[in-house]
Design a protein around this nucleic acid. Structure first.
Lengths: 231, 231
DNA sequence: CGGACGGTTGACTGAACTCAAATGGCGTGG
DNA sequence: CCACGCCATTTGAGTTCAGTCAACCGTCCG
């Protein structure tokens, strides 16, 4: 979160307010579930480092990751349990450090600072746009295109918060988890990654992803970053 | 919208406020695009009758419908144009009558009425939950399961606003449009619908869908309505 | 009457899944 | 330090699901 510059409205003032509001630090370890017992209001999380994901557990045991949270991302956690069954959970993908804040405090601050209001609006719009794009990805794209698109999106999002320099970034996902995001089996993810690797577009080694040819990768993914910058 | 009772918080007071705020009626005809020229803020639409959809146009010409708006649904429209290309549009599916309101007026009213605030929160939570479920549908389910799930979801949503009595409702979608929602070709949608029909689960005739065996349809769809009722 | 459109059906193709086995890294415990 | 087991990944072979191409039908509308 060091040099986050999410959107145009996120200025120094915003940063200061956020840093004053989000004070409690928590660390989650790989596969640990974010949990905050029975509160109706929920609690706001801001990712400092590492990745987290929201996942749906389907009736037949399959799992779908519906959102990933990268450094700088803000999201509410409130238990989503229906008839005693956890339908919707948030889980750390690798080590993940976050800070927290009550939604009330954030709303209060937002009432007093227009730039913060607009930043929160921007974030919610962007998150919704990502959800819609993932619907399109899963509905329309081939598996290797989805893998490529995911990488492009993550890289673009990381660049918004000053990470991903040299088209290189920490990539904690297993192929199983990639499959849970794009709706494919780990076997097919492996094959698709091999295709992309063999085409010289990227490499993954030791949890670090290096994009070699961003332009061709984006073309292969039909990636257009417009949806990540709502106005 | 006659006897809408969306969530617990949507009471008589809310209904009165909404009826006072949303005064301008507009009708859109089949395939007509919702349009409101160059405003940054956007404008709020409330569906009175008929269906509308938000669709993404992908680089290769394919189309993905990412949201459908049924009677009682509230959504903002603001031009989503990047580099002169329409990426995201809202279009009528059949005849669609709506009312409009400025977001500012709605926010102002919400500041004064807690029940309205909570209703708006409930709506946004539910919409996000639907987006996430659609990601899961497109990622994990077989095409005939997706078709069944879509019907279950629509029926459940219609029942929230007092429609769908007798498990019967107006269904304006073409098979092409169903395919644009669930990520399938119209040919395969036709086959899947035939399967579902032949199993005696539902019938579509003259733009009216009749569910014959809701329980078995829900089972075939792995449908669990929990996500449509955020708390 | 003719054309456009939506829906149905068949034959074929191709993408992605399943099942299965083998590899290699990594951490734990002897 | 080594052996072992676990986990993630890779690869192969066969199957199934869904897409493509194409023909045909019915209806609605100009």
């Amino acid at each position: 979160m060091a040099k986050a510059r999410l959107c145009e409205d996120f200025n120094e003032e915003c940063r200061d307010i956020v840093e004053q509001l989000f004070v409690n630090f928590i660390s989650y370890s790989k596969k640990q579930t974010f949990f905050h017992e029975g509160d109706d209001i929920g609690i706001m999380f801001l990712v400092c480092s590492g990745w987290a994901a929201r996942a749906i557990h389907l009736a037949d045991g399959r799992r779908q990751i519906t959102e990933i949270f990268l450094p700088g991302d803000l999201f509410p956690v409130h238990a989503s349990i229906s008839q005693g069954v956890i339908e919707d959970e948030i889980v750390a993908l690798g080590e993940c450090r976050v800070t927290t804040c009550s939604p009330g405090a954030l709303n209060e601050a937002s009432r007093q600072t227009n730039a913060l209001t607009r930043t929160l609006w921007w974030l919610s719009q962007r998150d919704a746009a990502i959800l819609r794009m993932w619907i399109a990805m899963n509905g329309q794209y081939r598996v290797y295109e989805r893998v490529a698109h995911l990488v492009c999106e993550v890289l673009e999002r990381l660049k918004h918060v000053g990470l991903g320099e040299g088209n290189r970034f920490d990539f904690p996902l297993t192929q199983q988890e990639i499959g849970d995001i794009i709706g494919a089996t780990p076997v097919h993810v492996s094959r698709s990654l091999k295709q992309i690797r063999d085409a010289g577009l990227l490499d993954i080694q030791g949890g670090v992803l290096q994009v070699h040819d961003l332009e061709r990768l984006q073309k292969a993914a039909h990636f257009n970053p417009g949806y990540l910058n709502p106005r």
